[in-house]
Nucleic acid binder design. Structure first.
Lengths: 221, 221
DNA sequence: AACTTCATTACGGGTTTCCGGAATTACCTT
DNA sequence: AAGGTAATTCCGGAAACCCGTAATGAAGTT
């Protein structure tokens, strides 16, 4: 089984549950941190000391407090770790069950498991640890379609950027000018209109407000 | 100290932490449920059996699953309990720290404490139990301004209804017609425009899309 | 080089929204 | 009942958005 495990979660009570499960799995060397920055430092230190962690279990959202963080969210942490230490096993353990977000994490960062916090969360986490140890990918039942279902997969970064800009209150013309300045490929007002139209059809949104609201609901932006 | 306590939370691991804290506080009779409906039934049964609960600690958001619920959220549960059993002490223990939501809960339902799940969550919960036992209201530091700060208090149900309708993709004219049919007081297109303008100024939103996005972010809709 | 294809851009007219001001109505005070 | 204030409604022009079509441009094919 895994020799050295790190758990990153800012809720003390969650950590407590995870540590309990860990014991029953025969994980004897489990440490916990409450900040992503601490997680990063510990993992780097483990490598320097020739005693690296071989599993990270992390939440996605961490509350902000007085400590300013370099990696404020679990996603930031995963991003940098995947780049620097690609062979580290990572299990995400989060309340977040919106498919778009799960899909991004799995496809972009190749996390080894995605477990939803919930009534059966700890059981599933336990299963995930075993599966990941056998080099398989695990996802909770409720988000498993994130891997298979391709319905909204033809939404690219441009679409998200566009929606984010709209949600920030920019007009379509302002966005067009902004894109022109930043040399972002389709930058004409017409193209932006067309893209929005495509998105409205895909999400069956009545208008742009509806579209942005849906985008927020499903965790796209 | 409290004689009979019920904890409602769908995350097993959270419950574990809460139960641990409860013991250190000298609460010997603590039960837990994972669904709001179960909480309601137990509390009602307690009264019938002449052995009522005197404290409820509940989360706000419960995951949906195969079981269809009469009270799907903690807010629904609180609403009905406050109406039927006004003297029951209620502590909300939730990850939710958006002021608007907290404000609604405290002012509308008079919950006795609001504790944010977080790094110090369990400590604060412990403090909250003691305070509530002394008939005082407790709120976590980070949301304490929900009680004092009145900045956005002049937003009424009409505003929220309006924003919700917009987020659902209705045009302003459709909303106007809808309001006319439902006899909702200001229903003219012009009034709707004026109200939106007021909200845009209050939230310093550039346009309606921005306004709806902000509304979603702060938990207003 | 001519052709096809596809993405991007440009344009025009209709609709919705935005933003004043003015008129009307509702409600409260005296 | 008269008067005053605030909310609501009506109106009109400017701006933004919507939507279809046509023009342009950048590939790759033969």
């Amino acid at each position: 089984m895994f020799k050295k495990v790190l758990v990153a979660d800012d809720l003390g009570s969650i950590n407590l549950g995870v540590l309990t499960i860990a014991k029953t799995l025969g994980l004897n060397n489990v440490e916990r941190v409450e900040y992503c920055d601490d997680a990063y430092l510990r993992i780097k230190k483990g490598i320097l000391d020739k005693d690296p962690y071989d599993l990270l279990i992390t939440d996605l959202s961490f509350k902000e407090d007085h400590r300013t963080q370099k990696y404020p969210s679990g996603e930031d942490l995963i991003k940098v770790l995947r780049k620097e230490i690609p062979n580290l096993k990572i299990i995400v353990y989060s309340i977040e069950d919106r498919l778009q977000k799960v899909r991004r994490l799995i496809s972009q960062y190749n996390v080894n498991a995605y477990v939803c916090k919930g009534r059966k969360g700890l059981e599933e986490l336990s299963k995930a640890v075993k599966e990941v140890y056998e080099d398989r990918v695990f996802t909770s039942q409720q988000v498993s379609q994130a891997l298979t279902n391709k319905t909204t997969l033809d939404i690219d970064d441009f679409d998200i950027l566009l929606l984010r800009n709209l949600a920030l209150g920019k007009s379509q013309e302002e966005i067009s000018l902004d894109f022109k300045q930043k040399k972002i490929s389709p930058c004409s007002l017409s193209s932006i209109e067309k893209r929005l139209n495509k998105l409205k059809i895909q999400f069956s949104a009545n208008n742009t407000i509806h579209l942005v609201a849906i985008g927020k609901d499903i965790g796209l932006i």
